[in-house]
């Protein structure tokens, strides 16, 4: 119920921001669309019986995003050098990375972080392993990914999977 109320308020705020027209007819149409979206979301919850959990802390996530920006800058620089060097990359490799997060959203954040840093792409997500493809594989890559895994695990709240 709490999630529904938050989603309704968020959608209404988004509509008010984006619309810019506040005539009565438009306003009623906006209210109808917000409630239609909420109805569809609740119905989808009933169909597959799979609730989304948000088991991450806000402040730790913000801190993680700042750390991620630095990582993105570093790996961007490396890939840019590879592109502009004029040589074709010849040390690409596929390998597996162990995942230690328990909640789904933290795993999604980890997979998206791997893909977002240029030079590594998450190709497949299995139970507790991600298959990752790297552009220029060397021994430091594995350590960097394990480091990122620890950072993502740090943003999970402690009571993951207790009550859904």
């Amino acid at each position: 119920m709490f999630q529904t109320i938050v989603a309704t308020l968020g959608l209404a705020a988004l509509w008010l921001l984006m619309s810019g027209l506040y005539k009565p007819l438009i306003f009623i149409l906006g209210i109808i669309s917000v409630f239609l979206a909420i109805f569809i979301i609740r119905r989808m919850d009933k169909v597959d019986d799979h609730k989304l959990g948000y088991d991450i802390g806000i402040f730790s996530t913000a801190k993680y995003l700042l750390w991620l920006m630095v990582e993105i800058a570093k790996s961007n620089w490396a890939v840019t050098k590879t592109i502009l060097s004029g040589k074709a990359p010849d040390s690409q490799k596929m390998f597996e990375v162990h995942v230690t997060q328990k909640s789904e959203i933290a795993q999604v954040i980890f997979a998206n972080s791997i893909t977002l840093t240029p030079g590594t792409v998450t190709v497949e997500s299995e139970d507790d392993n991600f298959v990752v493809h790297a552009l220029d594989f060397d021994d430091g890559d594995m350590g960097a990914l394990t480091d990122m895994d620890e950072h993502v695990t740090a943003i999970e709240t402690k009571n993951v999977g207790a009550v859904k």
Binding site: Q92, P118, H133
Partner: peptide, 16 residues
């Protein structure tokens, strides 16, 4: 498999 990484440069750093 290498082009994916090149496009991801534009997706992350360029966009941000």
């Amino acid at each position: 498999w290498t082009r994916i990484h090149a496009v991801s440069v534009a997706d992350s750093a360029g966009m941000l």
